[in-house]
């Protein structure tokens, strides 16, 4: 879980850096050029396949882990108070992860699939005609329910990350009196800042176009 999780964390950071170009005031030009370059860079294509693979691996390992851990306690308690130290997110990673997976599937269907296999509008920049990915995103975020769905999903990602980030280091044996507090702080900061910025994109684009 830790290694695949850390890869997906890195992916999130890169994905966010790219997507923030959506709210640059240039009608999507930098985003479209960025998307075009990403789609035609062979290295990015390999990383992108790796990303799908790691998402699947993360899911498969989590299913195996959950099965083992459920079998480890066949009879539950009549009264069970969760220890105050164990955060809500840490005890519900499976539920959060499943909801995030639902989001990822719908997210891929809405954008990745559309862009790759749908009929995409084209746009012309300096004589070069490329796919207008910006337009697809812009149209999708006209629907307030869709925006709401993204904002809620990002909250779920945030909770999932709030445990996952620091937990990955603990699993790898990286617990040290000097570095663990830094890791915990970075984990908390990452799990707040990244989902908030992601959630800002649909909100800003909705407000710009309404």
């Amino acid at each position: 879980m830790s290694l695949t999780g850390l890869f997906l964390i890195m992916f999130l950071a890169v994905h966010l850096a790219g997507n923030l170009q959506l709210i640059l005031p240039d009608e999507g030009k930098s985003f479209n050029l960025y998307a075009h370059n990403m789609a035609n860079n062979p290295l990015i294509q390999v990383v992108s396949k790796g990303n799908f693979f790691f998402i699947l691996l993360h899911v498969v390992v989590s299913i195996l882990l959950t099965r083992k851990n459920t079998a480890a306690r066949p009879i539950g308690y009549a009264a069970s108070k969760s220890a105050s130290k164990a955060t809500w997110a840490s005890r519900n990673m499976g539920v959060l992860g499943t909801l995030v997976l639902v989001f990822i599937v719908l997210h891929l269907k809405g954008f990745w699939f559309e862009l790759k296999y749908g009929t995409t509008p084209m746009v012309d920049y300096d004589g070069e005609t490329i796919k207008n990915a910006f337009l697809i995103v812009k149209e999708a975020y006209q629907n307030p329910l869709y925006v709401l769905f993204y904002v809620i999903s990002m909250a779920l990602v945030g909770f999932h990350l709030s445990h996952g980030f620091q937990s990955a280091f603990q699993t790898l044996g990286l617990n040290h009196v000097k570095y663990t507090p830094i890791i915990k702080f970075l984990g908390l900061a990452f799990s707040i800042v990244v989902p908030v910025l992601f959630a800002l994109i649909p909100i800003v684009m909705y407000l710009q176009n309404s």
Partner: peptide
């Protein structure tokens, strides 16, 4: 079962054993 790093164990340990030990074992 397997550890998912919730930290419930160290909160309930009567001897205050830290999950730093779990990282060391890993």
């Amino acid at each position: 079962g397997s550890c998912t790093n919730t930290g419930a164990c160290e909160a309930e340990c009567p001897k205050g054993i830290s999950i730093e030990n779990i990282a060391r074992m890993n």
